[in-house]
Nucleic acid binder design. Structure first.
Length: 153
DNA sequence: GCCAACGTTGGC
DNA sequence: GCCAACGTTGGC
């Protein structure tokens, strides 16, 4: 089993939204590297750190699981969608996603500040790399453990 | 295949 | 709302 971090803007879709709906198709990823993680590397049951970006306090706010195999993101075919991709075809999809299932909300946010303060323990962590804007990124088992140990009591 | 222009991300 | 960083696009 592998581990991941997935970013969402809470104004658009928050951990509370995920708690309410239970499972959510992770639509709208339009970055090839992020797509490839979902398409080629994720497996059902993988652990997901749910991260709030563009938030008052950016950071990890919950734990989720990969709930499905990858499948084509339906929004790419929908001209009404913000995520419509005119270059995508039903028989030649460009974008893939997985469904993400709620597991739990953390007692409090593990802020980006706290993550940075523990950068030494986290080692080489994609999230903290300079200029990283990936919205889906890998987390090592050691990083997963370390981050969840930082959860406020 | 280069690279300038442009759009987006996301912290602040 | 600003803007640095970076990915994508498209002309050549």
């Amino acid at each position: 089993m592998r581990y991941w971090l997935m970013k969402s803007e809470p104004d658009a879709f928050s951990i509370d939204d995920l708690a309410r709906v239970g499972t959510e198709p992770w639509t709208g990823v339009r970055n090839y590297q992020a797509r490839n993680f979902m398409w080629k590397e994720m497996a059902v049951g993988d652990g997901v750190l749910f991260y709030h970006s563009n938030a008052k306090v950016p950071g990890v706010v919950g734990v989720a699981r990969v709930a499905t195999e990858a499948y084509p993101d339906p929004t790419q075919f929908d001209p009404e969608s913000d995520y419509w991709d005119p270059k995508a075809a039903i028989d030649a999809p460009r974008w893939f996603l997985v469904d993400v299932a709620f597991e739990r909300k953390l007692k409090d946010v593990i802020s980006l500040d706290v993550l940075r303060a523990n950068a030494g323990r986290l080692g080489d962590f994609v999230l903290l790399n300079r200029g990283t804007r990936l919205s889906v990124l890998p987390v090592t088992p050691a990083q997963w453990r370390t981050i969840l140990e930082l959860e406020p009591k």
